[in-house]
Design a binder for these strands. Structure first.
Lengths: 102, 102
DNA sequence: AAAGACTAGTTTGCGCCACAAACTAGTTTA
DNA sequence: TAAACTAGTTTGTGGCGCAAACTAGTCTTT
């Protein structure tokens, strides 16, 4: 079996970007996570996290819910079903590459 | 065991880029490959392949040897030992992410 | 009571870079 | 001898990731 390497060029850029890949990987494993938690877990700055979350939300891969923690704003993030499937597809996609070269 | 997701942000961009990832994956499995072969195998245009190869060479991950096939130029590409190790490290790096979320 | 620091984000601006298109240089064909 | 082909390289530009600056509300200190 030979890999069709061309397929690999179509890796979902939206997920492939390291920052978003990490966010998606985290959200894949938890029920939900808030902004501050993600910030610390990923090491991303507020600005970067904010814009990456916005892109993932726009793609329908995550859902953002703005609530309050007492008097302070609190943004809850959770992966949608679409996002979960997209992440699994991405993972499977990359695995092809690695199986071929192992 | 919890993954340090911050490490994953440091994914080697040079290899992470899909076009170069595919090139590296191919060169990992073969002794050497020429420009035209890589072009067809990857589906990259001449221009893109050329510039990606240049970057990989600059990084010391591949070696380019310009020879002739009869009267026509022929560029042979092969992965260096450094490149091989870098590719393996990249793969291991990504696997961490996938193991955590499987 | 008002200045300064803190929480929780969003917006802006710059710099890099992947990609397509244009170009180079030699060769074969009609 | 002009057009088409081989085998690439160079150029231009649009998009995007990142850091820094900004917004908006809250707490603290004096």
């Amino acid at each position: 079996m030979t890999t069709d390497y061309r397929l690999l060029l179509e890796l979902e850029r939206l997920i492939h970007e390291p920052a978003r890949l990490v966010i998606m990987a985290i959200l894949y494993t938890v029920e939900s996570a808030d902004f501050v938690y993600l910030m610390h877990e990923t090491g991303l700055t507020q600005g970067n996290l904010s814009s990456h979350l916005a892109k993932l939300e726009e793609a329908g891969y995550i859902r953002l819910e703005k609530t309050f923690n007492g008097k302070f704003p609190r943004t809850l993030c959770q992966q949608t079903e679409v996002g979960r499937l997209a992440f699994e597809a991405y993972r499977a996609h990359l695995r092809l590459l690695f199986e071929e070269s192992s």
